[in-house]
Amino acid sequence: MSKSKKSEFRPNDYVVYPAHGVGQIVSIEKQEVVGIELELFVISFEKDKMTLRVPTNKATEIGMRGLSSPDVISKAMTTLKGKAKVKRAMWSRRAQEYEQKINSGDLIAIAEVVRDLHRTDDQREQSYSERQLYEAALERLTREVAAVNGADEVAAAKQVGDVLISRAAAA
């Protein structure tokens, strides 16, 4: 590992922050905190109307990463096509696992949550908490697909939706 990973991210870069998904680095600023000068990435999450300041020296350590490669996007799409893997564990335990996957920032893990919680119209109803997790995972996946493909979220949502529909049709 190189001693300094400072130059890895630059202003205007899209990045993935594990707990919040895709954001854009607006700037890099210096701020004095308790007498220590810190260099911070200022990241805007426009959809959530939120701005986050992340110390540049901690970014990689906390799991901030660049957007996935097109290769990872296609792996995520392949994951969506797979058969849902639903463990027999209690819902509270499964919900916890799904949440960890969503917040891991790992696109494949997020795709697994979408796959496992996706329901077609004729399948059993989803509980409120299942729906919440499904929508959170779907939104993370869609935003990253949109950012990587340089498309808008509507086009990305259609792409993801088409994969889920084709999977349901094949089942």
Rank of each mutant, 00 (worst) to 15 (best):
R140Q: 02
S127I: 01
P18D: 02
D116S: 01
T60P: 11
R119D: 06
A146K: 01
G150L: 08
I25F: 04
Q123L: 11
V15F: 00
I108Y: 04
K87D: 09
K5T: 14
S2R: 15
V26F: 13
L117P: 01
T79N: 13
T78W: 13
R94S: 02
F45R: 00
A157H: 05
A109R: 11
M50I: 09
L107W: 05
K75C: 06
L80H: 07
L107A: 07
A157M: 08
G63Q: 05
A76F: 02
V72A: 08
E112L: 01
N12P: 05
S127R: 07
S69W: 09
Y17I: 07
M64A: 07
D116G: 04
G21S: 01
M90E: 14
V54W: 02
K47Q: 13
L141Y: 04
R131M: 10
Q100G: 12
I108G: 02
V154Q: 15
N149P: 07
E112P: 05
S129W: 15
A146P: 05
V114Q: 03
M64Q: 05
E39G: 09
G82R: 15
I165K: 12
N149T: 10
Q132E: 13
S127P: 08
Y14A: 08
K83T: 09
Y128C: 11
Y17P: 03
P11N: 03
K101P: 06
R167E: 01
K47S: 12
